[in-house]
Design a protein around this nucleic acid. Structure first.
Length: 942
RNA sequence: GCCGAAAUGGCGGAACUGGUAGACGCGCACGACUCAAAAUCGUGUAUCGAAAGGUGUGUGGGUUCGAUUCCCACUUUCGGUACCA
């Protein structure tokens, strides 16, 4: 009987859905296991073959854990707010909710087709009010909390108010960035409502402040970094500049140390942890004040206070608060030109720039250690957001400062003698201090301590731990996101009179929890208002109520969705306590590296915050994390003539410039062509002609073989490159089981690779070969109850052992190989014995659930194979008594010898040295060395 | 620029803790079956060489009896770089 995957898969897909096979509840008799996928943004293009890579892996793992006796939570949902649907709405007027809903339906169909074992009763859609109600609720908790540095945890802002009322503002509670003054309890009580609110804003974990956005005046909108190419808007190519706007932030910097420390306790790859550590960027150093001639103080942060005698100039960020007071009349023009230039550039561009740029303010500051005047410059390489936005430049020891000094003719004073340490760099912190007054002769590491003490004693600065990480911007001037549950109060009229947001001293008032969710209202236009405000500002009723018109960013909903799955339909809580306590946190999380420092850091923050408030029992959300690689697309190109735009040249003819048929064509431009029109590299000319009207009359300069060969390139799989391969098409051809196994067979899950279905027939043949162990070609059932031979048992148990080990280390590609080897062996042994094939079938079930379920039923079982038990490998079939050794002479393999494993080294030596091939190399002399590693290798050194 | 990762036959990859490089699959070649094709089965397949043997895991060095694996320096590609998700 033929293996009819289409019928089989349709049958079991229906069966699983009807019987709710994958529905899971809290079962206290079994250990829990939570396997999570990063949920997708449902794009209009549907799933492509790259998406399921991680999903198939987690699906296999979840099924495996269930067969191993765990109660497995394996949910899926949709990250449904986002820019593409909003952009589509701007272009077409279609409500993003409709676009999104349609995409979700399609995703769901595609998921089911692949046979995933998700418990869909727990699915979430982040744009659904029943979900974002709780996103808003957590935001209110963040707004209503502060970080108690003494207890090192978040708590209600009311405890801070109590402190202020009884003790005033204490030293420890000062927020170092804002450095607002201290006040007594009496002063606090005397403050106005507005003053109090402004002070509390410096402590709230969700707070309002100012930040720069990418403002595009021509489009009248704020742009995402993604929407900017080479400093211009991607749409239209208009200029973009940085503009300050009042925005919401999350005070993630209060959690920096805990986010660092938590990394020690989780099972993530070292590289992933390293990326998070570097992102947080903790560094110890000092804040030092440089007084300016005008009487101001420029605070610089330095990790190398020992080099301060070599600080020959200061560089401040072009956005620095003190800039205005530093510019002298003579330099004003130059500075303004320079600032205009910097405003047109993104942070990434500013740091990438290899050209040294900068401008002199005209002012000088005093180096506090030696009283020398140093010029103050501005330069794009100093960013306002990092440290204090000002640095002391030490050109002798810092590459960037040095280039700057050389370009602008600024003095360079050597301060560290590294002659004893050739090749040492500044980071090595080695050498002896010179030209540094009282530090002279000291080793760098000692000098750092001495100068820090000195700076603090003299009151010109203090020790400081700095973080590269900044507080997280939480506002988007967009429509398609969660509304903030916030209204703005008119100052002095706190009772119900609200104004539209935007005035700098408006006071935000949190909405009562009972009024959640605050529903995202309709708008007449999805376009921004043109003056930088979000589309909600065009809804009159919304503005009249004083509601915030910005919405939350994409990461709001995704920072906690893994908790909602635990109790997805609860209308009264984000999740019930007993359910949170049962499921705890995610045991295995699979997703892409592109989320390394975004989503994965924010989720940890939210989880720790909820932990502080006592809502969850664990303080890390994801115990084990695995990053799957991306599957790239293979784009195909045709080459169009510049002079004759309907003529296309085959790729191998492009350099044939002298040929008659290529004369006068001019330059050739590569054009993406849909990969569905191309097989191997050959273009299906008819399909291409029908693709677009403009190609109807296309003419082709063909290759010598009479065919049109396309060029190709590996690129991101994307609609715009026409290189998207849809899993549905693959499944129609070979079935979902084959598709799943093939995706795994492509290589290690962590690795990125281009999609190429060339090898898929290998997996397809495997499945048919497996099927033929059960059914003859004529359709006869071949299974017998005969007792298997040793060889058959060995083939089975070897496979069980290897597959179990490989699943545990998530090496699914080698599992597939093992299955192939096993089936090849069983086919060679002509084995159709139930005692072998039944356990093998269960082992295969996580990988190929459809065919397994079908054959399980054929074996006479009346329950789903999902409720079987994963077989254990029996070592008694795997004992080896001999090993085929490779014998190396000086590390090169020269001979082979089969030897029993119980021989001693001396016995082995005698046999090996007697080998003809070994004699040839030793010439009968005794070897210098004889290395014997039992069961591995023999190496003879001559 | 900065942070992280990857590189092995014609192709995807294997080699898990430093121990016989190329498992498994694709492709290709040849053969069996067939009127023929498909399917299936079998044999071969890193490379140079007639062979002996040499070379070979991005490049150049190093450690080691032995390196795809560890160390140093580089090249290229990919991901992130704070409003794509």
């Amino acid at each position: 009987m033929e293996y009819k995957f289409g019928e089989i898969e349709e049958k079991w897909k229906k069966f699983w859905a009807e019987k709710d096979i994958y529905k899971v509840t809290e079962d206290h008799n079994k250990p829990k296991y939570y396997v999570l996928d990063m949920f997708p943004y449902p794009s209009g293009a549907g799933l492509h073959v790259g998406h399921p890579l991680g999903y198939v892996a987690s699906d296999i793992f979840a099924r495996y854990k269930r067969l191993k006796g765990f109660n497995v939570l394996h949910p899926m949902g949709f990250d449904a707010f986002g820019l593409p649907a909003e952009q589509y709405a701007i272009e077409t007027g279609t409500h993003p909710a409709l676009t999104t809903e349609k995409a979700i339906t399609r995703y769901r169909e595609q998921y089911d087709k692949i046979g995933f074992n998700y418990d869909w009763s727990r699915a979430v859609k982040t744009c659904d009010p029943s979900y974002y109600k709780w996103t808003q609720w957590i935001f209110l908790k963040l707004f209503g909390s502060w970080y108690n540095r003494e207890l090192n945890r978040a708590e209600s802002i009311s405890t801070l108010v109590t402190f202020f009322e009884t003790k005033g503002c204490r030293e420890w509670a000062q927020h170092d960035k804002n450095e607002h003054e201290t006040f007594s309890a009496e002063q606090w009580k005397a403050f106005t409502h507005e003053q109090k609110e402004n002070i509390l804003m410096n402590y709230r974990l969700a707070y309002l402040s100012y930040a720069e956005v990418n403002w595009c005046a021509a489009l009248g909108t704020v742009l995402a970094n993604d929407e900017i190419k080479d400093g211009k808007s991607e749409r239209g190519g208009h200029p973009v500049e940085r503009k300050k706007m009042r925005q919401w932030f999350l005070r993630i910097t209060e959690y920096s140390d805990r986010l660092l420390e938590g990394l020690e306790r989780i099972d993530w790859s070292e590289s992933m942890k390293e990326m998070q550590r570097n992102w947080i960027g903790r560094s110890e150093g000092a804040l030092v004040d440089f007084e300016t001639a005008a009487g101001g103080k420029i605070k610089v942060f330095t990790t190398r206070p020992d080099t301060i005698f070599g600080a020959t100039f200061l560089v401040v960020a072009p956005e620095h608060d003190l800039i205005e007071s530093l510019i002298t009349d003579g330099q004003r023009k130059e500075i303004e030109t320079y600032i205009a230039y910097v405003k047109s550039r993104t942070d990434v561009e500013r740091q990438q720039e290899k050209k040294v740029t900068g401008a002199f303010t005209g002012s000088y500051a005093v180096n506090p250690v030696n009283g020398k005047e140093v010029p103050v410059w501005i330069a794009e390489y100093v960013l306002a957001g990092y440290g204090t936005g000002a640095i002391m430049a030490v050109p002798a020891d810092d590459e960037r400062d040095k280039k700057f000094a050389e370009k602008f003719g600024l003095p360079i004073v050597e301060i560290i003698d590294k002659s004893m340490h050739p090749g040492a760099t500044i980071e090595d912190k080695m050498g002896q201090m010179i030209n540094s007054d009282f530090l002279n002769g000291q080793e760098v590491k000692d000098a750092i301590k001495v100068i820090l003490d000195w700076i603090e004693q003299k009151g010109i600065g203090q020790r400081k731990v700095n973080y590269k990480q900044r507080d997280a911007g939480f506002s988007r001037q967009r429509y398609w996101g969660e509304p903030f549950p916030i209204r703005y109060e008119i100052v002095g009229e706190p009772d119900g009179n609200f104004v539209g947001e935007g005035e700098s001293n408006d006071i935000p008032i949190p909405l009562d929890e009972k009024l959640l969710p605050l529903i995202l209202p309709e708008v007449t236009s999805y376009k921004p208002t043109g003056d930088g405000k979000a589309p909600l500002a065009s809804n009159a009723a919304w503005v009249k109520n004083g509601y915030e018109t910005d919405t939350m960013p994409g990461y709001a909903a995704s920072s906690w969705y893994f908790l909602r799955y635990m109790d997805a339909n609860n209308p009264d809580e984000f999740a019930a306590k007993d359910k949170l306590n049962y499921w705890q946190n995610v045991d295995l999380y699979i997703g892409g590296t592109e989320h390394a420092v975004g989503h994965l850091l924010y989720s940890r923050l939210w989880h720790k915050f909820l932990f502080d408030l006592g809502y969850v029992e664990t303080d890390e959300p994801f115990k084990k994390l695995v990053n799957q690689g991306m599957i790239q697309g293979v784009s195909k190109f045709v080459y169009r003539s510049a002079n004759k735009p309907n003529v296309f040249v085959s790729v191998d003819r492009m350099n044939d410039e002298l040929a008659d048929d290529l004369k006068d064509l001019g330059a050739l431009t590569a054009i993406h062509v849909d990969v569905r029109f191309v097989e191997d590299d050959i273009l299906n000319v008819e399909k291409f002609r029908k693709w677009r009207p403009e190609y109807e009359s296309a003419e082709f300069v063909l290759s010598k073989d009479g065919k049109y060969h396309c060029g190709s390139a590996v690129e991101k799989m994307s609609k715009r490159y026409h290189n998207v391969v849809n899993p549905d098409d693959v499944i129609d051809k070979v079935g979902a089981d084959c598709f799943r196994m093939f995706e795994m067979f492509l290589g290690p899950i962590e690795q990125s690779k281009p999609w190429d279905d060339k090898g898929i027939s290998g997996v397809y043949n495997f499945l048919r070969k497996f099927w033929r162990l059960f059914y003859s070609d004529a359709g006869d059932w071949k299974i017998t109850d005969e007792e298997p031979t040793q060889a058959e048992y060995k083939a089975l148990h070897k496979t069980i052992k290897k597959v179990t080990e490989d699943i545990e280390r998530l090496a699914f590609n080698t599992c597939v190989s093992s299955f192939m080897i096993c089936v090849n062996e069983l086919a060679a042994l002509n084995c159709s014995k139930k005692k072998i094939l039944e356990p093998l079938l269960i082992t295969l079930a996580p990988f190929a659930p459809f065919i397994s379920e079908e054959l399980w039923q054929a074996l006479g079982r009346d329950t789903s194979i999902n409720f079987a038990s994963f077989p254990l490998a029996d070592e008694k079939y795997l004992v080896e008594t001999a090993h085929n050794y490779g014998v190396s002479i000086n590390g090169k393999v020269r001979a082979q010898i089969q030897l029993p494993l119980d021989l001693t080294e001396e016995e082995v030596k005698v046999q090996v040295l007697a080998l003809e091939n070994v004699q040839k190399w030793t010439n009968g002399a005794a070897p210098k060395k004889f290395i014997f590693v039992k069961g591995k290798i023999i190496n003879v050194v001559v």
